[in-house]
Amino acid sequence: MTISRPARIVLRILFLLGLLFIYVPLGVVVVNSFNADQTFSWPPTEWTTEWWQKMVENQGVRDALVSSIIVGLIATAVAMVLGTLVALALGRYAFFGRDTVSLLIILPIALPGIVTGIALNNVFTSYMGGLTFLSILIGHATFCIVVVYNNAIARLRRVGTSFDEASMDLGATSWTTFRLVTFPQIRSSLVAGAVLAFGLSFDEIIVTTFTAPPNIQTLPIWIFNNLFRPNQAPIVNAVAAALVLISIVPVYLAQRLSGNAAHAGGRI
């Protein structure tokens, strides 16, 4: 389609406006983390690094960060196993009910988080003796499966089955074929899936609110609990700014690993 020059210019302007819409609020958070005014009056008139220092020294923030990392690592590990298995099943076999299974996998992120949250909360509190560390893990692993699955199945479709068939024709068993042929082909997509799953878990708040026991705070829960306390505002803002800057890491990693820009959005 030949697009006229004025149309191109209009599209470019709209795109740049869209980027402004995306980046201005995040930029404001980062700039405000150096704003010396406790109420974040805009524009800032005086500057300070005090809030960053206070954030680093804050024990609540440190504990929450550790909890988030532990939950994220274990949930990712569980999701890796389950997501890879189901991707192999759906990517390599045709069977009755395959579409239903794929719908079932996306359901935990397609349905509103609050539904997943209270459904799990109900089961844990009414039938399994209350919320524990394990209940957070189960909740997180459930919605992380889809991310690993999406990355793995996209790769499985792309590489096709001819190498697997050749391996089997040459006498390799299913396991040997998986170990020496299939796995090396999908390995980088699995790592990308793991990075994205960890990111998703690290960021999650709704399901976590309903599955976390009162004594465990993940970082998002800590932020939410302190958001409406005026004297904590500067530290909350510093944490927010730090998270904005850190968020560049997973996208960069996933992009390097999957080699496809569009897959960096593999969280959907």
């Binding site: 995040l26 958070v29 998002p220 927010a240 968020s247 997973p250 996208v251």
Partner: peptide, 8 residues
């Protein structure tokens, strides 16, 4: 920005 925390 998809990876910047939802809450942030």
């Amino acid at each position: 920005p998809l990876w910047a925390s939802y809450l942030v």
